[in-house]
Design a protein around this nucleic acid. Structure first.
Length: 428
DNA sequence: TCTGGGGTCCTAGGACCC
DNA sequence: TCTGGGGTCCTAGGACCC
């Protein structure tokens, strides 16, 4: 039987803070977002007080005073570093590991010839001992079930739960049914607020009811994603382990401002720093960006004040990962959307149309000597090749350039074209 | 006074091509 | 010249995740 484990750091950011400040242990602690805006992590003690994720800190003033809640500003460099250590330690427990998020790792434990609950305990102990981070382990026959098991390991829903480790594969059919009938459908991975509401409207309120639903019906009423979730709940592993993280398709950098910003030059400065951060990430994955999007926003929580949201996408003539070239485009875009007289609360940029930096040797003129009737096919094959090598989004812009280049070469207007697709893209 | 910062995938509809 | 039906691509928007 397939056994997938999900190992997840408990209250991760809070736990990281506690590693370096042990005096926070056992006390109600929250970690706050940028500008100390809202709560992004809560210790168990704070959860017990009913504090929800994402609540603005200022709304907790009284409660915090009453219960001596300790707040820490977030320190993402620290969390990133702790995360790496945690994933490394966990990775020692199985040959196949997928790092899913900053605080979650999947391991494939299929075929392990041991008591997996005990094995899960070993993982917990070692991670705790070597990094200081407390984790829970959930095991099931699909990723979705592993996530659910992890939820059980935390919530002590299940009697077979051995202190932070739950293996759903060890439950009897009736035990599983009984357990799933007690868990709300909204706890399932992939069922968010909207879908939960719609499911409830159809009379589906528990995990068991969703599990028992007809896959084709769910596919018709919702989509293939939720249909897959139902299959996964039934132990049919549709989502495979992805050991190598795929390159990002978009890179975003944005911030809310502590104080409202009015001037273009102040926005310029913010946008410049976002662009430089994003470009750094872009270069780290050896990609170039074909477009950059810029947006600004006023404060939506102040409906009485004049509101203005706008964004613009700037296409780059040549894909690049050069900070200055990207910044130039970003500032140009910002200038286009900036309007005087508004109190801006947030700005951001996003790099899109990403593709690998290195050019592929593709002969764009292969087939040029063929009779005209056969050219189109060859050209399409060439474009497919570019698409396959360079990734989605390359084909059209290059394609237009190629066709133009072919036409010009046919009419002897120019022979200056190379086989460099980027140059040809400029032609279009 | 003070309200996060990232990402992914899927779908529907229009444009365009053959 | 007839102008249909199918495929593909792009975009925007909606849902989800941590």
């Amino acid at each position: 039987m397939t056994s997938i484990a999900l190992i997840d750091g408990n209250n991760f950011y809070v736990s990281c803070e506690r590693v370096f400040q042990p005096e926070l242990e056992g006390k109600p602690v929250v970690v706050l977002s940028n500008n100390d805006g809202c709560v992004v992590a809560r210790s168990q003690e704070v959860r017990a007080l009913g504090v929800a994720m994402g609540v603005p800190w200022f709304k907790l003033r009284d409660l915090a005073k009453q219960h001596s809640i300790i707040a820490r500003s977030s320190n993402y460099t620290l969390y990133g570093d702790m995360s790496q250590r945690m994933h490394t330690v966990i990775g020692q427990f199985a040959p196949e590991q997928e790092i899913y998020s900053i605080d979650e790792t999947f391991l494939d434990l299929t075929g392990f010839n041991c008591d997996l609950i005990e094995y899960g305990q070993q993982i917990r102990q070692r991670v705790r001992q070597w990094t200081g981070i407390p984790v829970c382990v959930g095991i099931g026959s699909s990723k979705t079930l592993a996530k659910l098991a992890n939820h059980c390991a935390k919530k002590a829903h299940v009697s077979s739960m051995a202190d932070g480790v739950t293996d759903l594969n060890q439950l009897s059919a009736s035990g599983l049914r009984e357990l799933f009938s007690r868990i709300e459908v909204g706890e399932v991975w992939g069922v968010g607020r909207r879908i939960k509401e719609r499911l409830n409207g159809m009379g589906i309120e528990t995990v068991q009811q969703l599990k028992d639903s007809s896959i084709s019906k769910i596919k018709n009423e919702f989509n293939v994603v939720l249909a897959r979730t139902v299959a996964e709940l039934n132990g049919d592993a549709c989502l495979s382990m992805e050991e190598v993280a795929p390159p990002k398709q978009q890179i975003m950098s944005s911030r809310s401002f502590g104080q409202p910003v009015f001037l273009l030059e102040d926005l310029n400065e913010a946008v410049l720093s976002y662009t430089s951060r994003a470009a750094e990430k872009l270069r780290k994955q050896n990609h170039v960006a074909g477009s950059i999007q810029v947006y600004v926003r006023t404060n939506p929580f102040k409906p009485d004040e004049p509101q203005y949201n706008n964004g613009v996408t700037v296409k780059l003539l040549n894909s690049t990962n050069n900070t200055f070239r990207l910044a130039e485009a970003a500032l140009y875009g910002l200038k286009k959307i900036y309007k005087m007289g508004y109190a801006y609360k947030k700005a951001g940029i996003m790099l899109t149309d990403l593709c690998p930096e290195h050019q592929v040797p593709v002969d764009l003129f292969s087939g040029f000597d063929l009779p005209e009737s056969q050219r189109a096919k060859t050209l399409m094959a060439t474009l497919d090749e570019i698409n396959a090598k360079m990734g989605r989004g390359t084909v059209r812009s290059a394609g237009e350039g190629v066709q133009k280049a072919w036409a010009m070469r046919s009419s002897n207007k120019s022979s200056a074209f190379t086989t460099d697709w980027e140059q040809l893209a400029v032609v279009s």
